[in-house]
């Protein structure tokens, strides 16, 4: 009985470790506040309704709406839009 309990506990903690690791890795980072404000201001001026600014792979990832459409924008360090993706 004790053996069963121990082996079960070991197996479950391994599983939990995997789950926790995937949780940590899966989440994008929010961009720092000052930069977020800058990006928001700039994009709002260009007609975007900015919903969220994240950091992903060293780029700023922006979730926004424009002309009633969902878009995802990727900006580099100098805040230049390097990629725009329409989401249907």
């Amino acid at each position: 009985m004790k053996k069963i309990l121990t082996s079960t506990l070991v197996a479950s903690s391994l599983l939990l470790g995997t789950a926790a690791a995937s949780f940590a890795e899966g989440s994008e980072q929010a961009a720092d506040a000052a930069k977020q404000d800058q990006i928001r201001a700039s994009l709002t001026g260009q007609g975007y309704d900015v919903r969220k600014v994240d950091m992903e792979d060293g780029m700023y990832e922006v979730y926004a709406m424009k002309d009633g459409k969902k878009v995802q924008l990727f900006l580099d360090d100098s805040m230049k839009i390097v990629r725009t993706q329409d989401i249907n």
């Binding site: 197996a11 599983l15 789950a19 995937s22 900015v50 979730y63």
Partner: peptide
């Protein structure tokens, strides 16, 4: 809810809870 952070956080928290539950279920 496009780009609305709390909805994303709810989604992620529920997934984490599901992963925890699956681990417990298997154990």
């Amino acid at each position: 809810y496009w780009g609305v952070r709390w909805m994303e956080e709810l989604h992620e928290a529920a997934v984490f809870w599901a992963e925890f539950s699956v681990a417990l279920h298997i154990a």
